[in-house]
Simulated assay, not measured.
Amino acid sequence: MRKVLIIGATSAIAAAIARLFAKDGDRVFLIARNEEHLKATADDIAVRGASVAGYRSLDVNALDEHRAVLEEAEGALGGIDLALIAHGTLPVQIDCERSPGLTAQELQTNAVSTIALLTRLAERMEERRSGRIAVITSVAGDRGRQSNYVYGAAKAAVDTFLEGLRQRLHKSGVGVTTVRPGFIDTPMTAGFRKGLLWAKPETAAKRIHAAIGKGTDVVYVPWFWGWIMLVIRFLPRSIFKRIKL
């Protein structure tokens, strides 16, 4: 029975993952901004088998509140074996291009708040010399593209931070899993035209849940995005700058 903390727990993917942990009978503590949605999610996973289904609201950009909320979660769970960070926003690229303030806000939410939480969690797990941290980033962080490079830059920052954190924590027995989803059909992507490359949150959740259980370092969701992004990463700049992605 694991002690699982999920931050950004009301997102479609995170809620689906929480249901899988509940089915395993794990102790689960949920953190997100909307308390009403949190309570509904906690009630749901309690019915589905979670041995503990606690929750606490938090605005992740309130960095000075992170320590107290993590301490509350740890107390409710009796420790933290696994922490999953899944919060984020998807900005409109053209709006960011016209507003330095909006760009800074999106970088704060999608990168700085995550890195701040990781710093707190890593300190705790390194001291105990056990545990696993998993973070949902995005394939957008693999290479900057004109359609979403503000979002991609934030995810790339988190990816690089996780790479260094993984190396640092390895000697302490703490694992780090980077989750890179492609197109997932969630409320956050409701305005996008869907096609063959899109997956449902439940499908993504199963792959993420399995990867965490196996201790995978980096997982693409669905699997074929690993091959797609391999091609995109290795396109020569002379070609890449001329195509629309």
Rank of each mutant, 00 (worst) to 15 (best):
R56M: 12
S57N: 13
S57D: 06
S57I: 04
S57H: 12
L58F: 08
D59G: 05
V60E: 08
N61Y: 04
D64F: 06
D64Q: 15
D64K: 15
E65I: 06
E65S: 15
H66R: 02
R67C: 04
A68E: 14
A68W: 07
A68I: 09
V69P: 14
V69D: 13
E71D: 15
E72R: 14
E74P: 10
G75L: 06
G75V: 07
G75N: 14
A76L: 13
L77T: 02
G78K: 11
I80L: 08
I80M: 09
D81Y: 02
D81V: 01
I85S: 04
I85N: 01
I85G: 03
A86W: 04
A86E: 02
H87N: 11
H87V: 09
G88N: 07
T89S: 10
T89H: 08
L90I: 00
P91L: 07
V92P: 02
V92R: 14
V92N: 12
Q93L: 08
I94C: 10
D95S: 11
E97W: 10
R98G: 01
G101C: 03
G101W: 05
L102S: 11
T103Q: 15
A104V: 01
Q105G: 00
Q105A: 13
E106D: 08
V112P: 01
S113I: 04
T114L: 09
A116D: 15
A116E: 13
L117H: 13
L117R: 03
L117N: 12
L117Q: 13
L118D: 00
T119K: 13
T119L: 11
A122V: 00
A122Y: 07
E123F: 09
M125L: 13
M125T: 00
M125G: 09
E126F: 03
E127I: 00
E127L: 13
G131C: 10
G131T: 06
R132C: 11
A134K: 07
V135N: 12
T137V: 14
T137D: 08
V139D: 05
V139G: 12
G141R: 00
D142Q: 13
D142V: 05
D142F: 13
R145M: 11
S147P: 03
Y149Q: 08
V150T: 11
V150D: 06
Y151L: 02
G152V: 05
A153H: 02
A153Q: 03
A153E: 06
A154M: 10
A154P: 03
K155N: 12
D159C: 02
T160L: 07
E163P: 01
G164M: 14
L165K: 03
R166C: 05
R166W: 01
R166F: 06
R166N: 04
R168V: 08
H170A: 10
K171A: 14
S172D: 05
S172N: 06
V174K: 02
V176D: 14
V176P: 01
T177R: 10
T178N: 10
V179L: 10
P181M: 03
G182N: 08
G182D: 10
F183E: 11
F183G: 02
F183H: 06
I184M: 05
I184T: 00
T186Q: 09
T186H: 02
